[in-house]
């Protein structure tokens, strides 16, 4: 068994909706090994995105502990949690979330700025990653000049460029057709194998679930 990368113990999260309290996560215990390629499945509103947000340090749990590598995520202050996200994580969003005024190269470069790398190093790394995801000839193209699949490749390059331990992908194929979904999954899988980067993919897309190594299913805020 590989060494543990992600560890969640008794994680709970409740949201207030109007006057009502809604329990999004109820006592989640979860361990993921280094280099995992795992799906997080469940219907809409089951808590998938909330769980990814908590692991990604984008939100705070009400209770429980979250550890990623050597980072005690649930205990970090804001300044350190920014450092954690920059150093240990990559994000892939359903809507790609690229900056429209930046070229593909600049969008990837963005993720390295938080690491304080010099411009020449950033650009070289961005080009290397874009070449690796098959967009070496699209460096100067802006998101509006790229197809949906190409945009998601840029987003994956941006997520991978800082050599993270874990990539959190939230419904990464929801906006893509079958052929493009296959290509994106192939790409994520090859990056997972070549770099040893773990992927936690939130989805209810069966095309994704049949390609991952393991699936954790969430229902009503609990892991099945």
């Amino acid at each position: 068994m590989s060494e543990k990368l992600v560890s969640l113990a008794g994680v709970e999260k409740t949201f207030r909706r109007g006057t009502e309290l809604v329990a999004a996560l109820r006592g989640i215990d979860l361990d993921l090994p280094q280099g995992a390629f795992v799906g997080l499945a469940g219907p809409s509103g089951s808590g998938k995105s909330t769980l990814l947000n908590l692991i990604g340090g984008l939100d705070r749990p009400d209770r429980g502990e979250i550890t990623v590598g050597n980072w005690p995520v649930s205990l970090l202050d804001e300044r350190r949690i920014e450092a954690y996200r920059a150093a240990a994580l990559g994000f892939v969003f359903q809507g790609f979330n690229l900056v429209p005024v930046f070229s593909a190269e600049e969008n990837v470069e963005l993720a390295l700025i938080a690491k304080g790398l010099p411009g020449s190093t950033r650009r070289a790394e961005a080009r290397r990653l874009l070449a690796e995801v098959g967009l070496g000839d699209r460096l100067e193209h802006r998101p509006g000049e790229l197809s949906g699949g190409q945009q998601q490749r840029v987003a994956i390059a941006r997520a991978m460029v800082g050599r993270p331990q874990l990539v959190l992908a939230d419904e990464p194929t929801a906006a893509l057709d079958d052929a493009t979904t296959r290509q994106i999954l192939d790409l994520m899988r090859s990056l997972n194998r070549e770099h040893g980067t773990a992927f936690l993919i939130s989805t209810h897309d069966p095309r994704v679930l049949e390609r991952v190594d393991a699936v954790h299913r969430l229902a009503d805020g609990r892991l099945a």
Partner: peptide, 15 residues
């Protein structure tokens, strides 16, 4: 959303 994305990938409020 763009601001949220930039902060998610590690860029701080100050920057």
């Amino acid at each position: 959303r763009e601001v949220g994305t930039l902060r998610a990938i590690g860029l701080g409020r100050g920057r």
